[in-house]
Structures are given as structure tokens and as C-alpha cells.
Amino acid sequence: MRKISFLLILLAFACKESSKENTAGNLENNKSEYFSSVETNVILEDDSLSVRAIEVIGQNLAFAGNNGMYGLYNSTQKTWKTNIQKFDTIVPEYRAIASTSNDFFMLSVASPALLFKTGDSGKMELVYKEEDEKAFYDAMVFWNDKEGVAMGDPTDECISIIITRNGGKSWSKLECENLPQAAEGEAAFAASNSNIVVKGDKTWLLTGGMKSRILFSPDKGNSWSVFETPLIQGKSTTGGYSLDFYDEQTGIIIGGDYTNAEGNKGNKAVTKDGGKTWKLVAEGKAPGYKSSVRYVPNSEGNEILATGFTGIHYSKDGGNSWEKLSDEGFYTLRFVNDTLAYAAGKGRIAKLIFR
């Protein structure tokens, strides 16, 4: 594999904000009133690859997956730079990634938990390691260029939460005395790197399993409270798998039970009060289990895409009703603008154009 050039990554991040400002003029951003179809263009295909974490960087895309593999896609040149990041003899599986204006981060599942950051040497550098046998991190995101958060399954009596305040150079794990106590069997799913949403200083974390709840912080992780959800729960495979907020009040959670993919009761809920209360939607109607949900940009919180290994579903009324746009399944999805997204899953990463 070719080594990722640190200069290339840095250049991509430097262009991040200007690219966001210019997406409205992108030729592929030609949204009609509602979506009726999706065009899928595979940009990376590898049967041995499984990708559950992608990050849009301007018009470009970063990923990290199994087999220690990570990479950057240049959308202008339509080329990939990929590499493998091992730790001693360990070949990690990465399911959580994040970025700031200056750096790219990737976090592995299982023990030891390994968090890497782009370094000045041009190589990824280890900035956090956790060797607890129960360690299993699920998602990561940054509030700003200095402060970020990642969450994982409990190793003690609370959900694992690590935070950085210095741009990711070092990370500290919050003590359980400062967090809500986890219920028996409560954990989280590293299904799509979408268990965490931040809006301003506010943060929402989604748990699942025997208990599926929302952990909420109004102040970037300094204090926490917990909100109940009506999602199906009670088994290790049930509960919320993915979370998104359109603004500080409007949000959606989706999941179900991946061992019963067609089950469509208790797997979709929305909030209008910042996550304090949740209401089930499309109860007993498709879609069933999904691993990733995202609001369509510039849709006033009305349009939503949900994906999983059973295909892509679309709602144009805030989640109350859904239609299937594609049978092609992906684990995770991220929008570039309101008609263009990237999606990743088993053996492939694709560009999706919604029409």
C-alpha cells in the first residue's frame, strides 16, 4: 500500500471550510423538491474490506476500517491514498474516526483500544491506549479544533467517555462518579460511527442493548444527564444504533435488532425538545433495522435518509413515513451537500447522487 502523504491530508483539511462554503454551487447539487431515486457509483471495491466509519472532508472522503486499513479519497482527481496502521503485531479494526481543521483521528474497537492522530512526522501517532479487557469504543467527534469526545461500552459502572481539550494530543477518561450509572447490559453499537451528535456546546450520546438511552451534556462533557427512549430493548442486539440532530431541538434515533432485520416496531423515534422526550414514528411500518440515519441538509428537518445492509430508505415528512430508494446496502452514510453523499459497507465505498 502507498503511504498517505501528511501534506495531502493537511491540504485536504485546510480546504475543508472553504469547500463547505462552496458546496451550494457544486454541479452535482441539483436537488429537486424530493428524492425519487439514487445513483450509486462505487469508488472503492475490496471484498476483504469492511468500513463503518467515514468522514467527509470538503469534497473529499476519509475512512478507516478493518485489517488496519485507512485512506483518503481525492474527489477531484478520483484517486485513493491508502495505508495500513498496525500496533506491534496487532492489526486493529477501526470503527470510529473524526477530524479537525488540522488533523485526522481513528479509534479501534476491542482491547487494547488504540486512538491514532496524524503526526508531524507524516505517520499516524498513538495518542491514547486503553488495555481494559472490556474496552470497546464506538464513536468519536470533535466540538471544535481543540475539544473532542469518544464513547464506548462500559468497563466499569458507566458508559466509557474519553475527552481531549488540547486538539487530540492527549485524552482523559471520565470517572464514573461524574456520569450516569449504566444499566445492566447497557452498551453501544459500533455500527456506523454515529452514536454521538454535537451542536454547539451540546452533546447527545446514544446507548443500546439491554437498555437504550440518551446521555446528554449541555457543556461539552463537563456535566451529564440521562433521557429514556421508547426503542425496543432488553436484548444485547436491540436498541438504538444511530443518532442524528438537524438542530438543537429536532433529532432522530434509529436501530432495532440486527438479528431481526425486518422487525419494524420500536426502532424509530424522533424528538422535538432536544432529546428530553422521544416519540415512536412509522410504528409497525418499514423500514426495519438500520445502522445509520442522517438528516438531508437544507431540508428543515423534514427529509431523512436511513441505511443498513437491507438498503436505503427515505422520509420526506420527518420520519412519519418512509419509502425505499435502493436495495443496495451500506453500513454508514455521510452527506457532502443536499444531493450528494458517500456511503460505506461490506467490501465497498460509494458516491451516492440523489435525484
Rank of each mutant, 00 (worst) to 15 (best):
K202E: 15
A190F: 01
N60G: 11
K123Q: 15
K81P: 11
E93V: 12
G25H: 10
K290C: 09
D317F: 02
G122E: 13
L7S: 15
L243Y: 03
S192E: 09
T89H: 09
T237P: 02
Y342R: 03
F63A: 04
S321L: 04
K3E: 13
G200L: 14
T203W: 12
S121I: 10
R348I: 06
G239D: 10
S101C: 02
I57P: 07
S225N: 09
A135F: 15
S99R: 08
T118N: 01
S236E: 12
S121L: 08
D219V: 13
D46E: 15
I84Y: 14
E283V: 14
G345I: 02
Y342S: 06
V38I: 01
A261P: 12
K86G: 03
G148N: 02
K351S: 13
E283C: 14
N144F: 01
S242G: 03
G200E: 15
E45M: 03
K279M: 06
I97W: 00
D273C: 01
K276Q: 13
L352E: 07
I353W: 05
S170C: 04
S291V: 12
R95K: 03
E228G: 04
L280W: 07
D244G: 09
G284P: 11
A282D: 11
S299P: 09
T82Q: 02
A150I: 12
D103A: 10
G318V: 15
P154A: 05
L115D: 09
P297N: 05
E93W: 03
K316V: 00
G255W: 02
W171T: 14
D247I: 12
T310L: 06
R52M: 02
E300N: 13
G122K: 10
L333Y: 06
I9D: 11
N193I: 07
A24K: 06
Y289T: 03
Q233G: 05
A64H: 00
D201A: 12
D132K: 05
G240Y: 01
T250D: 04
E125F: 06
G275I: 15
